[in-house]
Amino acid sequence: MDRFRAVLGLLDAVGCTYEVKETQAAGDAARFAAEAAAETVDAVAVAGGDGTINDAINGFHPATPPLGLIPLGTANVLAHEIGLATDPAAIAAALTAGRCLSVVPGQANGRRFMMMASVGFDAHVVGGVRRSVKRRIGKLVYVLSALRQLLRYPCPHLTALVDGRPVTAATLVVSRGRLYGGRYVMAPAADLATPEFQVSIFRRKGRLAMAGYSAALPLGLLNRWNLIDHVVARRVEVHARPGDPVQADGDTATALPVVIDLADQAIEVLVPPDSPVPSVGASRKTTCLERSYGA
């Protein structure tokens, strides 16, 4: 937690006031966010990973202050997406002098997500991850889970409706942003500022195909070799294999059948002053912090 303490020190140095609230269980971050009043708080800064951010945004309402990030997680996908570095000075600058990016989250059966949701093999891998192991070994936990799922899950075809059009695939990743699992590019044309999804379609079924996809992702070959297809959409429905997991932002969010669509409320996200993403708004001076040891 040295990074967290360093960020607080920098906020102190420029005269920011803040309140630290530590989460103890799922739902705490959402409750803290819902309680943050725009009249007294300029930003809700989430210290943790993408899972903690996901929890928090499910408590946002129209009067909630902008979302700020203190990335402390395993992958920090949203932080990478907006160009936020992990050094304390960059984090503090985003919180105190950042610009606002308006992002319409996705939602899976009504639960919001900021970056991506998926069904099929990918969701089974995420569902097989134990948080206690993830804290000890980091991203390696996903490799181990993938190996287990290749033995257990048959990787069959699923039939989905993508904006009403039938699609057959073994895995679907429905993305709001370009990145996945950290800095890996999954959906190259996705744009947080545009309220739509880029749906990545893994068409080949079976364990061997999934092993190949899994190896290609970190090597940057999924898109370079055109191993997957992409379509732009605003709604995805999957009714196959009831009870199978659906992952969102790196955690199991719900189960099949699922409807994935856009939320009806945009969330303002504080991005670095030099972020490559388009944004509008003024700097923020005070911060409410949420800290989680479970992300």
Score class of each variant (00 low, 15 high):
117 A>C: 11
156 P>Q: 07
135 R>V: 06
155 C>L: 01
196 E>Q: 13
69 L>D: 09
6 A>Y: 10
183 R>Q: 14
171 T>L: 02
180 Y>T: 05
247 Q>F: 02
90 A>D: 12
203 R>W: 01
141 V>H: 06
42 D>V: 02
248 A>M: 14
121 F>P: 01
116 M>A: 12
288 C>M: 15
227 L>E: 11
119 V>T: 14
274 D>N: 11
47 A>G: 10
293 Y>N: 11
48 G>L: 03
36 A>M: 09
205 K>M: 13
135 R>W: 02
81 E>K: 08
9 G>A: 12
91 I>Y: 01
35 E>F: 01
159 T>Q: 10
184 Y>K: 08
67 L>H: 03
111 R>C: 06
77 V>S: 05
229 D>F: 07
39 E>C: 08
205 K>T: 15
113 F>R: 06
52 T>E: 14
92 A>C: 10
166 P>M: 02
123 A>D: 00
172 L>A: 09
118 S>K: 10
19 E>I: 14
231 V>F: 05
284 R>A: 11
141 V>W: 04
63 A>D: 13
125 V>C: 05
195 P>F: 14
263 A>T: 04
250 G>E: 12
282 A>Q: 12
190 A>E: 04
271 V>T: 04
262 L>A: 07
147 L>Y: 08
82 I>H: 00
42 D>K: 02
293 Y>A: 14
205 K>R: 15
175 S>T: 13
289 L>F: 15
127 G>S: 09
248 A>F: 04
83 G>F: 00
236 V>L: 03
54 N>H: 15
288 C>V: 14
141 V>Q: 15
133 V>Y: 10
183 R>N: 15
59 G>E: 02
30 A>K: 14
171 T>I: 11
80 H>F: 05
141 V>A: 15
185 V>A: 05
164 G>S: 09
259 V>L: 05
129 V>C: 07
23 T>L: 06
164 G>K: 02
131 R>T: 10
275 S>R: 04
277 V>S: 07
76 N>G: 01
143 V>H: 07
290 E>R: 07
260 I>K: 01
223 N>L: 03
236 V>W: 01
30 A>R: 07
64 T>E: 12
119 V>S: 05
293 Y>K: 14
186 M>G: 00
295 A>M: 14
23 T>C: 14
58 N>W: 04
232 V>S: 12
214 S>E: 10
152 R>L: 06
151 L>G: 10
96 T>R: 09
125 V>A: 08
212 G>Q: 08
60 F>E: 05
262 L>C: 13
98 G>H: 03
224 R>Q: 15
272 P>S: 12
228 I>E: 04
286 T>K: 09
126 V>N: 03
113 F>I: 06
287 T>A: 11
46 V>S: 07
102 S>N: 12
275 S>D: 07
67 L>S: 08
251 D>M: 13
50 D>T: 02
89 A>W: 06
70 I>S: 03
63 A>R: 15
87 D>Y: 11
116 M>W: 14
179 L>W: 04
48 G>D: 02
77 V>E: 03
113 F>M: 06
